[in-house]
Amino acid sequence: MINMRRMAKRSEPYVFGAIVLLCLLIQVQSKQFFTGNNLVDLARSMIVPALFSIGAMMVIVSGGIDVSFPAIASLAMYATDRILLNVNYSGNVMLAYAMAAGFGLAMGAVNALLIGVLRLPTLVVTLGTSSLFTGIMQGALAASESPVPPSILAHGKEKLFTATNTQLGLTSDMPSQILILLGALLLVFLLLRYTMLGRGIYAIGGDEAAARRAGFNVVGVKVFIYCFVGAMAGVTGMVRASMMMNAHPTNLLGMEMTVIAAVVLGGTRVTGGLGTLTGTMLGVALMIILSNSLILIGIPTYWTRVFTGAVIIIGTGVTAWQAGGSGRRLASSGTGL
């Protein structure tokens, strides 16, 4: 177990190295990377994908795959927004987050029931529920872009501080929603590191039968994961709506691929059992820096997809090669697990 985690850790320096190289390239090309406002812009862009990636990482570590979180986030956010608008809500924004988390939890429970209790394949289930939740939003709720209640609007305008770029005099605001990301990271870190539940997530991803024999409640752990990830997705949907000061029903859809790519890039093993929060955050950072710097590097729009694809292939390739390499070393040295 400990050896496995150490092994996963070994792919992190490579991702970190890739980030450093990319940052230097951007700095050389634009002279704008290491400026206060650019760093704030990047941190801001990371909030939503990073929140999603925490949940996606937990699911992948447990041996599953979830593609329904953008649909859960969208429906939870949109339903909350519409209800609050209907009652002319003007109270605390915490209620909005709690409601979105509640809706997300309910939708996550559907996944949990199908995957944990009925033992259906995760990809098939989440593809299905993703379509189901999107359908409810577009059919039953007839979703279209809508404004947000005044308290969420005010929350969206809150900023922790403003960074100024001394060269160009440009300013960028750090949104207060970054605190939610930091809170979620701390919570999940403690959960994975110090609780039996957290150990169980790694254990069932490593070998489900062995985990069961070791005394883990496999169904319970799975039900927990999908409910928790659903609730987190709901909160993330509300984070996005408040940051954009607008409830857009479809604007998160399609994000699952970027997020899963970032998680895998960060060294989480797709077959489960391995993965760290540090690696995941590095993976997200690499993807976000990349997608927010192509203009800074000076790559014309027509070539951005080629460049992005190349970085993902090289990045995951190095990670996979590294994992394979350590496996070989491990085998030849005969230490085993």
Binding site: S30, N38, S45, S172, M244, N246, N251
Partner: peptide
């Protein structure tokens, strides 16, 4: 950069514009 993509997305339009103004 004669033509930039916003992907019909408010967030992307905002991010691309910030990049353009920096570069």
């Amino acid at each position: 950069e004669p033509r930039v993509e916003s992907e019909d997305n408010l967030e992307k339009a905002y991010e691309r514009a910030k990049e353009l103004f920096k570069k």
